[in-house]
Design a protein around this nucleic acid. Sequence first.
RNA 1: GGACGUUUAGCUCAGCUGGUAGAGCAUUCGCUUGACGUGCGAAGGGUCAGCGGUUCGAGUCCGUUAACGUCCACCA
Length: 876
Amino acid sequence: MAKQLEKTYEPKSVESRLYDFWQNNGYFHSEPDRSKKPYTIVMPPPNITGKLHMGHALDNTLQDILIRFRRMQGYCTLWLPGTDHASIATEEKIVKALAEQGITKEDLGREGFLERAWEWKKEYGGTITSQLRKLGSSCDWSRERFTMDEGCSEAVKEVFVRLYEKGLIYKGEKIINWCPHCKTTISDAEVEYSEQDGHFWHLRYPLTDGSGYVELATTRPETMLGDTAVAVNPDDERYKDIVGKTLTLPLVGREIPVVADSYVDPEFGTGVVKITPAHDPNDFEVGLRHNLPIINVMDKTAHINQNGGKYEGLERYEARKQIVADLEAGGYLVKVEPHKHNVGECYRCNTTIEPWVSSQWFVKMEPLAKPAIDVVRNGDIKFIPERFDKTYFHWMENIRDWCISRQLWWGHRLPVWYCDDCGETIVAREEPTVCPKCGSKHLTQDPDVLDTWFSSALWPFSTLGWPNNTEDLDFFYPTSTLVTGYDIIFFWVARMIFSGMEHMKKPPFDTILIHGIIRDSQGRKMSKSLGNGIDPLEEIDKYGTDALRFTLATGNSPGNDMRYLPEKAEASRNFANKLWNAARFVLMNLGDDEKAPHLPEKLALEDKWVITLFNNLVKEVTENLESFELGIAVQKLYDFIWDILCDWYIEVCKVRLNGEGEAKEQAKAVLVYVMSNTLKLLHPFMPFITEEIWQTLPHDGETIMLSSWPVYDEKYDFSADAADFERIMAAIRAIRNRRAEMNVPPSKKAEVYFATKQIDLFKNAGVFFERLASASKVEVGSEWDMKGAVSIVTADATIYIPMDQLIDFEAELARLKKERENDLKVLAGINAKLNNEQFVSKAPAAIVDNQREAAAKLNEKLALLEESIKNIENRN
RNA sequence: GGACGUUUAGCUCAGCUGGUAGAGCAUUCGCUUGACGUGCGAAGGGUCAGCGGUUCGAGUCCGUUAACGUCCACCA
């Protein structure tokens, strides 16, 4: 015996050792190799604040499967890893940590704070990447990048300056989404809407001339402090007379005009809308059209500011209470109704967003969106599944300018300076020393940083060296496949596409493989607040990395969510163990000096059968992987390994392995060949166990991960032999089936007689019936007179087992009749088709032939069945 | 208000370009068959949500209805 494996597979003793082996030998590393085609994946960079969760596990498992597959296929593969600085999330974490020490970030100052932040990054930023290693991720760690490293920062600056110079980045006084908790702007994409129970406060605003009042309704009464008009629809007859008049704003006393604007829906409410340009996006638009003043009544923590008069200093909801009370006291409140409405919240902290007018930096989207739409529309970039292109188009076609400035410290600072003397704005790659306009040396850099997604949008090329013309960039860009969840299509995917088109003039990737999210066993989203998250590292600890990966890949189809059930991981663990034991069996039968996997000259029938199936498997799995049907591929591997290889092939091989001589050598060779090549197919999914086994089997090369991917070969298609072996299998199954029905234990052997036209085939298979169908003796002839024996009818033979005493003849008769009834039903169906001229003339010939054959076989079988029934009925 | 997704065995889910349904788990029966009880052999269980259509033929294509879910949207 050459080598021995433990009885059960122990992932822990294998995984870290093999990962180190791969890494230390540089197997993950990649250099441009012009003799090969490139296959590139850039890893969606996890946040440095992150801890590995199921989403990461799925995302990276899928990427690793694709990369390992292509690497074995002979591509020059690069999987480029990295992390994201996650501006808001990280800053918040550090602020919290500081708070525990009683320090605010202002105490430290910008410099001091950033120093802390970098220290924090150094300490915790590597957590997630070390966890990714536990998953077996075969990325090129020597190329690990960080969105705020020198190169990425240079790319960010370059992009900012270029877009500014093209007029695609501008500064503007606009209404933006303000998070009073994070104290920064966020982009439209970062606002999440949720329906909430609120109120409709009906107010009356008196006309200044004393001729009455108008009634209107609002969900946010506190914003009235900033009202600068009231609007009605220009076609609304009811209010024709008051357009142009002024109202006196209650509590404030300001005179505000009544304006006519088609934005107002006369059917809704009273048809009158209060206009607060500073605190509502629609009102802001109306304000622009009518030249209304913008009165900002809130500060950045959503407290009323000095423009709010006596309400100054009140928090917005406190102010709401006060104002409603005062309105009521003043007779301005008509009524209050309950009202459900959509409230925008910050996607990071869930604080209600305050629309706010302020001066911010924007990316002009329309010119960028167009090429990004085209490249998906013309098929140069494909979503898998396709349906996500609809989502993408809808978003891209309706996109508004992207607010990119953030009032934070952790992130890429805007490369923008202002002249203290003349107010000139200077946008430059390098810090300017003098104002180009007035020559002043007093320049101040804009304090804001950029939206985190601004840098990740550049990820596919900034990580390859852009803006420099590097060899990497030239070879590996455009990248190949982007693997990510549908939840960040807008945040990230869309922005990478327009960035790639704008700066590289080429799409950043050709395929976007979209996956869903992993839910808990009840179908709920895993979340911190629910505490229902499942830690992938714990699952790895329990079942092994391969089992987790296998679980995530199985039964998962692109774009769809998936529930994580521990039972699935257990099943995967069992599968790994099954494979392990199959390998143990093979090894047990090998000598010390086995040759590398090869096929012998002479092959037995069962060899041809398994080789044919394996050859087909190679073809199918390869096709599935190439078309991103990973779940289907892994299912086929599971079925092949468990059902074909273990349950059948190994079992029939035992016959030869227990003997000696050439037959034994053949069986060994085929076993090693099939096993070792199957391991290759499985390797992308279960990298550790396959490597561990492959190494103990005879092999060429250092590692399975660099071995060559099996290729379909026509000369290994022995379909006819395979079909013959299937006839034997069918007979074995039929015998087992009948014995089970009759409750005969396997230990009770019995003689078996075959009446068949294929005498040689069944004669040669005699040993299989002895081994797998509890036969004590096998006789084959063209017919047998076996009255009283149990008879079993298959398409190719009638099988008699003389176990008279075990038979309940009545039950047996009933069973046979039921079988006959079933077969007749099926036959009737087939005949109906064959008698249908339409079917015969219109269906493909192969299908028709197939049905004719099936009918002929059934007829034969029915004749045999009929005979068996008669035999029992006439037994005396 | 739009758009999309899901609805297949008790549970969780596969099912690619249409040819009379599959897996895992669960259930029932039998098994120390020298790789594996994390196993072996066998069984039961589905009008593929409803209706209509296209087709020789539909879980698979089209329309429609219902339930659930997701995303998008400026109705104060």
